[in-house]
């Protein structure tokens, strides 16, 4: 049973003060300052007056920025969807593997997750760029295909045109999927692993096929796991900075890149502050939706 703090005031103070003080001073205060700035305006090169204006938020909903918000939501949504499509079968296979294989596969999925995000993104550049791996493989097929065609008396295919896989929106989505796939697989796996397997066996025994069993038995049972996988993939993807910065082109800016520009280059801190709080509100909305879905599915189950 938990103790009330009154029973051991000295111990409570010794335990509670350091973390609460740290959290307050080095996390809540900085956030509060940004929040204050989002309601302020530049009055000089380095002075910002908190005037309580909503001008920054009004500017954030202008079509230009609204479009970037929309685009970020679409990119993050697409990333989450692709992660779900790839991650679900992978999680399913892992959950039903033998204990030893399971441990190895989980480790293999986890390991890239522990390596540096920047390094992973950089590794992807080397694979995707015009003289990178993917294009080299495609070129090899192209040239050999071309050779085969001349051999059988057809026109050769002509020169190989490397695909532009880098510095565009496709690259951003590929990069985000690459980075966030483990986030999706792990919660899905833990949901599928906990599931009551006799229900699946019953469904298969009663004549439903595998796809039907997965769709009408496994998916509803794993719904809370799917919801949390979706959430922890969607949130970091929505606020991604590095991936669109390194893999994207001029038109693949996401919210985080715009925020960075306000703080580091445009020097419009109030506007940047407003944008980052809008991003934070979007995150909280996503969390609230997930909590709602979770509660609903728990009540039903």
């Amino acid at each position: 049973m938990e103790q009330t703090w009154r029973q051991a005031k000295a111990a409570f103070a010794a335990i509670a003060v350091p973390p609460i003080a740290w959290l307050f001073l080095f996390f809540l205060v900085p956030l509060a300052v940004v929040w204050g700035y989002s309601l302020g305006e530049n009055t000089g090169p380095v002075t910002i007056d908190v005037t309580g204006t909503f001008a920054n938020y009004m500017r954030a909903v202008e079509p230009l920025y609204l479009e970037i918000f929309g685009k970020s939501l679409i990119v993050a949504g697409l990333t989450t969807l692709l992660c779900l499509i790839v991650g679900f079968p992978v999680a399913l296979a892992i959950a039903f593997a033998s204990p030893k294989t399971k441990a190895w596969l989980l480790l293999l999925i986890m390991l890239p997750f522990w390596t540096n995000l920047l390094i992973r993104t950089f590794a992807l550049i080397a694979v995707l760029r015009e003289n990178g791996y993917v294009n080299a493989i495609l070129e090899w097929f192209w040239n050999n295909g071309s050779g085969v065609m001349t051999m059988v008396g057809l026109q050769p295919l002509g020169d190989f045109e490397p695909l532009t896989l880098l510095y565009n929106n496709t690259a951003v989505v590929i990069g985000l999927v690459y980075v966030h796939l483990p986030f999706m697989v792990l919660p899905l796996y833990s949901a599928l692993d906990r599931m009551d397997r006799s229900l699946m066996e019953a469904s298969l025994d009663l004549g439903a096929g595998h796809l039907r069993t997965i769709w009408s038995v496994v998916v509803p049972l794993a719904a809370p796991g799917i919801a949390s996988g979706v959430l922890i993939t969607f949130i970091p993807a929505l606020g991604a900075y590095l991936t669109p910065d390194l893999l994207g082109g001029t038109d693949s800016q996401m919210i985080a890149n715009v925020i960075e520009r306000q703080f580091k280059r445009a020097n419009d801190w109030p506007f940047g502050a407003a944008l980052s709080f809008l991003l934070m509100y979007l995150t909280f909305i996503a969390i609230a939706v997930q909590a709602f879905v979770q509660r609903k599915s728990e009540r039903r189950g």
Binding site: P30, V34, Y241, S276, F277
Partner: peptide, 21 residues
């Protein structure tokens, strides 16, 4: 709830908060 915040807040938001601070 506040303890959970640093886990869920987007990195970029925390980054600018630290910059400003």
């Amino acid at each position: 709830g506040s303890m959970a915040l640093p886990i869920v807040v987007p990195e970029i938001c925390m980054g600018v908060a630290m910059l400003v601070f």
